[in-house]
Simulated scan of single mutants.
Amino acid sequence: MTDFAQYDGYKKDFDFYVGPAQPDGFRSGEFGDRLWADVSRILGTPFDGGTITPDDHNGYIYWFDNNDLSASLYSGPREPGSGALDQVPAILTVISRSENVASSELAERLYTGLTGADGYLVVVLADDGMPIAANFDIGDDW
């Protein structure tokens, strides 16, 4: 397991890049809806009152916030390419607003939940863009 706490700190986020393990028939809206529902379930927070907005590039923007956390997701179209980030078209960021729960704790919970669920490729980047966890081979070309 990755020790996300070592990357935690004031104004530091964890960016989750997520994609389908089986990309056949990929649709950004359907994928975003499923991922958004899984994130809500993993965090144990109903995203009631959140928003889902289509963008101009065949993608969808999801947003939710409350006193404990804020969550944003962009689920865009898959781009052709063989790089690691080409395989993970969704970008998810969850930030703790609680004094009792660090963002790293939410990141660990999300990583464990998403990689334990069938069907997701996951790469987590620290706020400086360096990869800190992945459940597939991302190579060394960073």
Results as ranks from 00 to 15, higher is better:
residue 132 I to V: 07
residue 99 E to A: 14
residue 54 P to Q: 14
residue 47 F to H: 02
residue 6 Q to W: 00
residue 40 S to L: 04
residue 57 H to P: 14
residue 106 L to S: 09
residue 118 D to N: 14
residue 50 G to E: 02
residue 18 V to N: 03
residue 121 L to H: 04
residue 105 E to N: 10
residue 78 R to I: 13
residue 87 Q to I: 11
residue 121 L to V: 09
residue 95 I to G: 00
residue 20 P to I: 09
residue 33 D to H: 12
residue 120 Y to P: 15
residue 18 V to F: 00
residue 23 P to N: 09
residue 135 N to L: 05
residue 92 L to M: 12
residue 69 L to A: 09
residue 23 P to T: 04
residue 63 W to F: 14
residue 26 F to D: 05
residue 83 G to N: 05
residue 85 L to Y: 08
residue 69 L to R: 08
residue 2 T to I: 14
residue 35 L to M: 04
residue 140 D to G: 07
residue 19 G to C: 01
residue 56 D to K: 15
residue 4 F to V: 11
residue 20 P to N: 14
residue 47 F to L: 08
residue 129 G to N: 05
residue 81 G to M: 07
residue 116 G to S: 11
residue 91 I to G: 07
residue 43 L to C: 07
residue 141 D to M: 02
residue 79 E to N: 15
residue 121 L to T: 05
residue 115 T to E: 08
residue 64 F to M: 05
residue 27 R to Q: 11
residue 124 V to W: 00
residue 128 D to P: 02
residue 56 D to R: 15
residue 111 Y to D: 04
residue 117 A to M: 11
residue 101 V to C: 06
residue 121 L to Y: 02
residue 134 A to T: 09
residue 139 G to F: 00
residue 13 D to Y: 12
residue 53 T to L: 12
residue 93 T to E: 10
residue 125 L to A: 01
residue 45 T to R: 12
residue 65 D to N: 11
residue 84 A to K: 01
residue 10 Y to F: 14
residue 16 F to V: 02
residue 60 Y to H: 13
residue 30 E to K: 12
residue 96 S to Q: 13
residue 65 D to H: 14
residue 68 D to E: 13
residue 5 A to H: 03
residue 23 P to A: 05
residue 83 G to D: 13
residue 22 Q to L: 11
residue 112 T to E: 09
residue 89 P to Q: 07
residue 107 A to R: 00
residue 114 L to K: 14
residue 9 G to Q: 03
residue 115 T to A: 08
residue 36 W to N: 02
residue 91 I to H: 06
residue 9 G to Y: 00
residue 28 S to T: 09
residue 51 T to A: 06
residue 39 V to A: 11
residue 57 H to I: 11
residue 12 K to D: 03
residue 45 T to Q: 11
residue 22 Q to F: 08
residue 16 F to P: 10
residue 92 L to H: 01
residue 33 D to P: 01
residue 117 A to Q: 14
residue 37 A to M: 04
residue 106 L to V: 12
residue 96 S to N: 13
residue 64 F to H: 13
residue 118 D to T: 14
residue 100 N to H: 13
residue 17 Y to D: 03
residue 73 L to N: 07
residue 114 L to I: 15
residue 118 D to C: 05
residue 6 Q to G: 01
residue 92 L to R: 01
residue 142 W to K: 05
residue 93 T to R: 13
residue 113 G to T: 08
residue 1 M to N: 10
residue 24 D to A: 15
residue 86 D to H: 15
residue 67 N to I: 10
residue 73 L to Y: 03
residue 102 A to H: 09
residue 96 S to V: 14
residue 72 S to T: 15
residue 117 A to C: 04
residue 25 G to P: 03
residue 22 Q to W: 05
residue 51 T to D: 10
residue 19 G to D: 07
residue 73 L to P: 07
residue 111 Y to E: 08
residue 128 D to E: 09
residue 77 P to A: 15
residue 27 R to Y: 04
residue 71 A to Y: 01
residue 99 E to M: 10
residue 28 S to A: 15
residue 82 S to I: 09
residue 55 D to M: 05
residue 129 G to C: 06
residue 137 D to C: 01
residue 19 G to M: 01
residue 78 R to T: 12
residue 102 A to R: 15
residue 34 R to Q: 10
residue 23 P to Q: 06
residue 122 V to P: 02
residue 107 A to P: 03
residue 135 N to E: 13
